[in-house]
Nucleic acid binder design. Structure first.
Lengths: 199, 199
DNA sequence: TATGATAGAGAACGAATGTTCTTTAGTCAA
DNA sequence: TTGACTAAAGAACATTCGTTCTCTATCATA
């Protein structure tokens, strides 16, 4: 009977401690330090643990050979999105330590900017006045993309459209007109995310 | 004339590259590897760069001495009104507001959880299927609050309402009915934020 | 009870790491 | 030109790193 090396009971705890350390310091420590953190007395044990976590998809190695967390590593924090079905009250799981919305939303930090949404011209796309748009300042956009354009020296968030007359900006609100640029259409960036804060 | 060692021009680029690498691998590499990434030919140069970034508040050291990013490291600029008027390719920034999304959205980390939104019952409130709701698991909610309730062992995101018949859950979609709990209404938490990722 | 597999300890070792020091090259002001 | 300052290169070095190997204790299964 062949089975995986991943021992849920123990390794879950090791993973939890690693996640806790990473949540605090945003770094994966060396084997020697992990001995303290995980409570081992030998580096070889650490290596085996990390390799099991790697096999479980929680860790990977960078091109330089360093250990790095994978998306799976963050899944618990990001979404208890496997909605607990059975449990009525004791849904209370551990709080997401320090979540990683930044990492989740921003893939290219140096090219990413936040833009405050003004007006309700995109309300049917679920984009409200005051929302923060996560904008990636990339070279060019494709029709259908949500883009931030510069019109009359103002940011405008619209859907980029194209027809025989050329590029244009499509609002998501019947009370607003399609914008057809008189000159060239200046695209500031592509919207890759949206953030809203209540109240 | 005493001034800071932090050279904006160059160090900004080094920081950007470090951020890009970290965004991809979630790890800060060793000096030797940073030589490749930042384009240096000596480790001592790397050390000085990192120390300048530390002085600028972008990096810190863990208790074990490893380099680690700080909150500042993850901050993004909000390009609000500042519409680059003259500049055709509005490059970069003037003193502008900066935000770390985690901090911005999550004020009480230990009580905050992310819940994936299912269905389109709140579509008129700009909350779509697949969005992430930032939920604060506080004691009790007030009428008018966006809440996550537990109905039939499932999370449900609705507006909390109250009339003479008691508390109930109001969708933001005319095709869905108001939910009036048969027993007690179980509130999981209050929605304090929303996150969406495109595409 | 015997067996095989596994988790972990422990030691050894070459390679890689971070630090420190010295040297070189470039910049700016007087 | 000179002199002060600084970024970066380069070398030297003790420390630490990750790997590999052997050995022990534990445990489930046959």
């Amino acid at each position: 009977m062949k089975k995986t090396n991943y021992k849920p009971n123990k390794d879950h705890e090791y993973l939890a401690r690693l996640q806790a350390y990473y949540a605090e310091h945003r770094v994966i420590p060396s084997y020697a330090h992990l001995m303290e953190i995980l409570g081992f007395a030998s580096k070889s044990a650490i290596k085996k643990v990390l390799e099991r976590l790697e096999a479980a998809g929680m860790l990977e190695r960078t091109p330089y050979g360093d250990w790095a967390p994978t998306d799976l590593f963050f899944e618990r924090a990001i979404a208890n999105h496997p909605v607990p079905a059975g449990t009525p009250v004791p849904v209370s799981d551990e709080p997401c330590e320090k979540v990683m919305l930044d990492r989740f939303l921003i893939e290219k930090p140096s090219q990413t900017v936040l833009v405050r949404v003004k007006g309700d011209s995109m309300i049917n796309a679920g984009i409200h006045h005051g929302d923060l748009a996560v904008v990636e300042r990339c070279c060019h956009a494709n029709p259908g993309d949500l883009v931030v354009a510069i019109v009359d020296d103002e940011f405008t968030l619209k859907t980029l459209g194209r027809d025989q007359e050329g590029f244009h900006l499509i609002p998501a609100n019947p009370h607003y007109p399609i914008i057809r640029p008189q000159g060239k259409l200046e695209i500031f960036g592509v919207v890759v995310g949206l953030v809203r804060k209540y109240p």
